[in-house]
C-alpha cells in the first residue's frame, strides 16, 4: 500500500467511526477527490460531511474551528501547504489560542492537512516545507506524514489531543510504499517514533528526520555504510512539535529536513537534545536542510536548493571522518 492510499484509507476509517467529523477543502469531492486524490471516494460515502469549498483557505480553517468550537471535529485539506500562510490568522490567533485563552481548556478537535515539499517542479509557491513557521505556537501540535506509521493512528491521535494539529505531508511520499526499508537495515515502528537501524550494531550517530526526507536519509545511510563503514540509526518522529525524543546512546546527532535555512525545525530539535544530552555529546547537533533560497522550478535549479541524500552523506562523513 502506498502512502496516498494509506492516508485515504485512514480518512475513510475515521469518517466512518466519527459521525461528527467533517472534511473540508478545495476540490475534495468526487470525482476529483482532491488535487492529490487523498480524499477520493469520501464524498460519495459521506455526503454532507465532505465539503468542497471556495478558494478561501482562511475561511475554511475558520469554519473548521467553528465546527470544533461547537463540538464537532474537522479536517481541512490545504491544496498546497504553501497556502497555510493564508490561514495563519485562523490557526494561530484563533484556533490554537482558543484552547487556553478563555481561561479553561477548550477542546478543539481539528486537523489541517498540508501537502508540502518540492522535487516535483511546482516552483517557489507550491513546493515549500513550512513546518518551521508553525513551531512554537502554544496549543498547536505539528505532525509529519511518514511511510513508517499508519495514518489511521496519526489522525486518531491528533483528534484525541483536542487541540489544533497540522499534518505536513511531503508530496514525494504519496507514491511511496508504506513500511519499505531494504536490508540490511531494519524498521521498528511500534510507537510515535519509527527507528531504522542496523540490527545488532552500535550506531556511530543518530539522524533525526521528518517522514518526507526519510528515504533520502536511508540512501545516505546505505552509502555511508558501504563506502565509509559509518553506521547510522534513523529516527522518524510522527509528531514533530512539541519535540519529544528518546535518543540511543550516541555522541553525534544530525537533524535532516527539507525546510530552507534559518529558524528551522532542526534548530528546535537541537535545542531539546542539547538540554537533555549535552554532557554525552561530542559537540552540537548538526543541522542538514535545504539552502537559504526560494525553491526554483527548473529541475536542475531545484536540485541545487533542496536537501538531498548526497548532502546528508557528505555532512555526516565530514563530521565523523573529518
Amino acid at each position: 500500500m502506498r502512502v496516498a492510499e494509506n492516508l485515504n484509507a485512514a480518512l475513510h476509517g475515521l469518517m466512518e467511526r466519527e459521525p461528527g467529523l467533517y472534511l473540508l477543502g478545495e476540490d475534495v469531492v468526487d470525482p476529483y477527490g482532491g488535487a492529490f486524490k487523498i480524499t477520493r471516494g469520501l464524498s460519495e460515502r459521506f455526503p454532507g460531511r465532505v465539503l468542497s469549498t471556495p478558494i478561501s483557505e482562511n475561511a475554511i480553517t475558520g469554519v473548521a474551528a467553528g465546527l470544533a468550537l461547537a463540538g464537532d471535529s474537522a479536517i481541512v485539506e490545504m491544496m498546497f501547504g504553501d497556502f497555510t500562510a493564508l490561514a495563519f490568522d485562523q490557526l494561530v490567533n484563533f484556533a490554537a489560542k482558543s484552547v487556553t485563552m478563555y481561561g479553561e481548556r477548550l477542546p478543539m478537535r481539528m486537523v489541517v492537512r498540508c501537502p508540502v515539499g518540492g522535487g516535483r517542479g511546482y516552483g517557489p509557491t507550491h513546493s515549500q516545507s513550512l513546518q518551521k513557521h508553525f513551531v512554537g505556537v502554544p496549543g498547536l501540535a505539528l505532525y509529519e506524514a511518514s511511510p513508517f506509521r499508519d495514518h489511521a493512528d496519526v489522525l486518531a491521535e491528533m483528534l484525541e489531543r483536542a487541540e489544533p494539529c497540522v499534518l505536513f505531508e511531503d508530496k514525494v511520499l504519496y507514491t511511496r510504499p508504506m513500511y519499505e526499508v531494504e536490508p540490511p537495515f531494519a524498521l521498528r515502528a511500534d510507537g510515535g517514533t519509527a527507528e531504522v537501524s542496523l540490527p545488532g550494531v552500535r550506531p556511530d550517530c543518530v539522524v533525526v528526520a521528518g517522514g518526507g526526507v526519510a528515504h533520502r536519509v536511508l540512501d545516505a545511510m546505505r552509502s555511508l555504510l558501504v563506502e565509509e563503514e559509518i553506521v547510522c540509526t534513523l529516527l522518524v518522529p510522527s509528531r514533530i512539535y512539541p519535540v519529544e525524543l528518546e535518543l540511543p546512546d550516541v555522541r553525534q546527532v544530525f537533524v535532516v529536513e527539507e525546510g530552507t535555512a534559518g529558524g528551522t525545525w532542526g534548530a528546535e530539535v537541537a535545542h531539546v537534545v542539547h538540554q537533555r544530552h549535552w554532557a554525552r555529546l561530542d559537540g552540537p547537533v548538526t543541522l542538514v536542510h535545504s539552502a537559504d533560497s526560494v525553491i526554483p522550478t527548473a529541475a536542475h535549479l531545484e536540485r541545487e536548493v533542496l536537501v538531498s541524500a548526497r548532502d546528508v552523506h557528505r555532512t555526516i562523513r565530514e563530521k565523523l571522518r573529518g
Partner: peptide, 9 residues
C-alpha cells in the same frame, strides 16, 4: 468564518 462553522453545525 468561525461563526460560519458554528452555523453549519
Amino acid at each position: 468564518p468561525v461563526a460560519c462553522g458554528v452555523a453549519l453545525h
